[in-house]
Structure formats: C-alpha cells, structure tokens
C-alpha cells in the first residue's frame, strides 16, 4: 500500500532547545492516523512541518510525494488543513466563504455538496458571525474539504466541543474516511484517538514513544483489572485471565458468605496506556 506521509528522523530546534529529536513514522493512504501527546511534546511542530508552515533542521519528509518545505502548489491542491484556531470574516455567509475557497482550487467539490456534508445546509445563507462555536468548526472543516483533498490535517478538531458536538464531529470524520481520505489527526483526547484512529503514535519530548493500532497499544500494556470492596476496603487485582480469577474470587466470597461490593472488571483503556507512557501528568491539561 502506498504512503501518504513518510517522515524519517525529523529534527528541529528552537533557540538551541530540541523540539523534535528524530521523529519517524509513516501514514498509509486511506487511514486515519492519530498523533497523541501532551502540550510541548512536538505534536504541533511535527504537523506544521508536514503542512509546510515550518522548515525542519534535518530529516526527510514526503507528503503525497512532495517535499512540503518547498510548498509546491501541486501539493497545496491536494491537502486540506483545519487549524486549531482560525476565524473567517464574520461578514460573509457560509456559502460565500465556501465559494471563496473553492475558487482557489483547480477541481473543487460542489460547494453545496460540501455544505451538506458538514451539516450546515440550514445555515447556508447565514453570516459567519451568527454561527455557534461548533458550527464555526464545521465551517472550518467544510473549507478544508472544498478543494477535494486526498489528505486532511485535523489539529485537535473537537477541542472545546460539548459531548454531543463531539459525537457529531466524530461521525463527520468517519464519513471522510469512508470517502477514502487520508487523515492525520492530532488530539489530546484519548477516547477520540481510540474511536477514530486506525493507528496511533504517541509523541513525548520530541520522540515517538509508541506506535500501533489502539488495540496493539492496549495489548502491550498491563492486563485486566478487577476491583471490588471487601469489608469496606478497596481491593484491586490484576490478572491475565479474568474469567478464572473472577470465578475464584466470587466462589471464595460465596463460600465465606461475604459480598464483593462495587465489583467491576476493566480492560485498560488507551488512556491508561498513554498515561503510563507520558508519565501520568497529562491530567493537568
């Protein structure tokens, strides 16, 4: 299978501080690739090098067969970028903003198609300033799609969303994937990466510390966990074989006539794995 992005030993320093210390990964055509990491880990620097906004100090990068540092027009025809923070002139309508951007591309998608795809058809003729925060992010996404890109960069696409808006955005990203788009997603929401990404790279202090499918990442980690309270005390048991362990625990409890209060069996989530990898201080974010 061909690669949409190849990054090989990327390095970048700012004023002598190493932001990237040899980042290598590959994004396959058609997959959703998640880049996870705490603030300052090198996520944004990596993505901005791939998007052509920043230059690298050393290493090799290919995006859709081009070197993004040269930012050739041919490459910009084929990528869509959703920035973390961007606004558009509040005075144009949703339809007008899409038309404006469609004009930049040789083969744009049908503007009304895109507006429907991102669910803004009811706001088609409304000015941008009347949109809610979530609708503005959808506008952002619509503008990234209007050039019919092969590769879409989504930088923390649901930051600041309420749960309902996040689920809508997830549906949208799944729709993009089903259209055959390659997606590079950065996020600090672990459930988001687990829900959406085919593969995930965890970046920490300028290096990739783990890379694989969410299942692989979880599979590499610790085993199932059984928690319960016995005589008011919290008990946590880690096990490779939860069926057997649970049977032993419950049999013993029944034989003793005691109860395992608040009994639960948990598989580790990507979050647990991630917190192990980045040292557990990510909760502050």
């Amino acid at each position: 299978m061909s690669s949409a992005i190849v990054a090989d030993d990327l390095r970048k320093s700012y004023d002598g501080v190493e932001a990237l210390r040899g980042v290598s990964f590959e994004v396959r055509a058609g997959e959703v690739f998640g880049l996870l990491g705490p603030n300052g880990a090198g996520k944004t620097t990596t993505v901005e090098i791939l998007e052509g906004y920043r230059t690298r100090d050393s290493g090799k990068v290919t995006v859709l067969g081009h070197d993004p540092a040269a930012a050739p027009r041919a490459l910009r025809e084929r990528i869509g970028v959703v920035l973390q923070q961007s606004e558009f002139t509040p005075l144009l309508t949703v339809h007008e903003v899409h038309r404006l951007f469609a004009g930049y591309y040789e083969r744009p998608r049908d503007v009304d198609d895109v507006i429907r795809l991102v669910g803004l058809e009811e706001k088609r003729d409304a000015r941008v300033k009347t949109l809610s925060g979530g609708q503005k992010r959808r506008l952002d996404l619509g503008i990234a799609l209007v050039g019919d890109p092969d590769l879409v960069f989504l930088d923390e696409p649901t930051t600041g969303f309420d749960p309902a808006a996040r689920r809508t955005a997830w549906e949208l990203i799944r729709t993009l994937r089903s259209l055959g788009k390659t997606i590079l997603l950065t996020t600090h929401y672990l459930d988001e990466a687990q829900q959406l990404a085919d593969r995930v790279a965890v970046i920490q202090a300028g290096r990739i510390v783990s890379l694989g499918t969410p299942a692989e990442l979880i599979g590499d980690a610790h085993k199932a966990e059984i928690r319960f309270q016995l005589n008011g005390e919290q008990v946590v048991v880690q096990t490779d074989d939860p069926t057997l362990t649970l049977h032993e625990l419950t049999s013993e409890a029944l034989a003793n006539g005691s109860r395992l209060e608040h009994l639960e069996v948990r598989r580790p989530t990507l979050e647990d794995v991630y917190l192990d990898l980045v040292g557990g201080d990510e909760n502050a974010e």
Binding site: R73, R76, G80, L83, E87
Partner: peptide, 14 residues
C-alpha cells in the same frame, strides 16, 4: 492574528 493568513497559505492561492 485570527489565522486567516495562515489558512490561506495552505491553499493553492499564490
């Protein structure tokens, strides 16, 4: 400052 110029740089508009 609102990121409009940055966004434009990622499009084919010269």
């Amino acid at each position: 400052e609102t990121g409009v110029l940055k966004r434009l740089r990622s499009t084919p508009l010269p």
